[in-house]
Computed example of a mutant assay.
Amino acid sequence: MKIAAIQMESISGQIDKNREKGKKFVYEAIKKGAQLIVLPELWSSGYHLTKPVFAKLQQETKDIVEQFRAIAREHSVVLVVPFIDKKGEDFFIALSVIESNGEILKTYHKSFLWDKEQLHFKHGERKYDPIQTSIGKIGTLICYDIEFPELSRILALRGAQLIIVSSVTRLASEKRWDIQLPARALDNTVFVLGANTVGEGSCGKTKLIDPKGAIVHECSRTKEEILLCDLDFSQIDKARLKIPYLKEFDYSLVPGLVETKLY
């Protein structure tokens, strides 16, 4: 199975330009055979904006999700599309998982907000449930969420085979990005796919990590590009035979967490 992550530079506030660039990358990934394609956090709006501007652009970013539902349906591809969501008067950094028939299987709201994000957005509900898609069972996190190891562990214990992280990770956080994604993959013997932006101080390095914590492929720090990789979920079982972290896990440490047969 081929999967893709789009590493792109967004122009803050330029919805039309970002949308067309994003679509171009997605269509290119489809032509190359990708069955799952992931876009980075706030790709359609840009990241460095004020709360009034985010609010102004919110509906347009959500409308783009509808356009990508049509792309998913037409090309039978699973898409992970971040956007700005709104409930009542509250705004959320969000993403939707779109099935290959165009159905939105899940919308996830970023649950941990970094620094000044808390001035613009609300925390999402802290519930971490993977979703079964036509390409496998995936968990979704957004940027700062990956820095909390408990979230990935819960997703893995609930059966996630691939944890997807849409992100705007800055150069100042590059070291953490390089350490934490492989750590989450190894700790939980799952694949981790991190889709990051470039430009405006972002560190790029979109990457796929295998269940043993090894980098399968990593993009550059500065260039727009498509990460395109083959993914074989059978590697998970092979890794778990040698690294039994989840087999040894004591479910009583997390009240309410139902034991899942992983071995």
Rank of each mutant, 00 (worst) to 15 (best):
residue 94 A to N: 03
residue 102 G to W: 06
residue 140 T to K: 03
residue 106 K to A: 08
residue 108 Y to P: 10
residue 7 Q to A: 11
residue 121 F to Q: 04
residue 96 S to E: 09
residue 50 T to I: 06
residue 205 K to L: 14
residue 214 A to K: 15
residue 86 K to Q: 15
residue 171 L to C: 03
residue 70 A to I: 09
residue 97 V to P: 02
residue 100 S to L: 08
residue 49 L to H: 06
residue 47 Y to Q: 00
residue 237 D to E: 15
residue 119 L to C: 00
residue 98 I to Q: 03
residue 234 S to C: 06
residue 75 H to F: 15
residue 201 G to A: 11
residue 193 L to W: 05
residue 145 D to L: 07
residue 252 S to E: 13
residue 5 A to D: 05
residue 188 N to P: 09
residue 46 G to N: 06
residue 261 K to W: 08
residue 161 Q to R: 10
residue 223 K to Q: 15
residue 28 E to K: 15
residue 76 S to K: 15
residue 6 I to R: 05
residue 242 K to V: 08
residue 66 E to W: 01
residue 208 L to C: 04
residue 104 I to N: 04
residue 62 K to F: 14
residue 180 Q to L: 15
residue 7 Q to L: 09
residue 54 F to R: 03
residue 219 C to S: 14
residue 132 Q to F: 01
residue 33 G to V: 10
residue 166 S to M: 10
residue 201 G to Y: 12
residue 138 I to R: 02
residue 260 T to G: 03
residue 149 P to V: 04
residue 183 A to T: 13
residue 22 G to F: 09
residue 36 L to Y: 01
residue 210 D to C: 07
residue 138 I to G: 01
residue 44 S to R: 00
residue 249 F to W: 08
residue 120 H to V: 11
residue 93 I to D: 00
residue 68 F to S: 01
residue 247 K to I: 04
residue 2 K to Q: 09
residue 244 P to A: 00
residue 235 Q to S: 07
residue 196 N to H: 05
residue 94 A to K: 03
residue 113 L to I: 11
residue 197 T to R: 13
residue 50 T to G: 09
residue 211 P to E: 01
residue 25 F to T: 01
residue 221 R to N: 09
residue 108 Y to W: 11
residue 120 H to M: 13
residue 79 L to K: 06
residue 113 L to E: 04
residue 229 C to P: 04
residue 257 L to Q: 05
residue 54 F to V: 06
residue 209 I to D: 00
residue 79 L to Q: 07
residue 258 V to D: 00
residue 53 V to S: 00
residue 150 E to S: 12
residue 69 R to I: 10
residue 12 S to V: 13
residue 21 K to E: 07
residue 240 R to F: 01
residue 60 E to M: 08
residue 82 P to W: 06
residue 180 Q to R: 05
residue 49 L to P: 02
residue 25 F to H: 09
residue 246 L to D: 04
residue 205 K to H: 13
residue 248 E to M: 11
residue 15 I to V: 15
residue 196 N to L: 12
residue 203 C to Y: 00
residue 86 K to R: 15
residue 68 F to T: 07
residue 121 F to T: 02
residue 203 C to V: 11
residue 172 A to K: 13
residue 58 Q to V: 12
residue 235 Q to D: 05
residue 70 A to Q: 13
residue 90 D to T: 12
residue 219 C to L: 12
residue 184 R to A: 14
residue 213 G to R: 06
residue 20 E to I: 12
residue 229 C to A: 15
residue 224 E to N: 07
residue 54 F to W: 09
residue 261 K to S: 05
residue 210 D to T: 08
residue 4 A to C: 14
residue 226 I to Y: 04
residue 84 I to A: 01
residue 171 L to M: 12
residue 171 L to H: 09
residue 209 I to F: 03
residue 115 D to L: 08
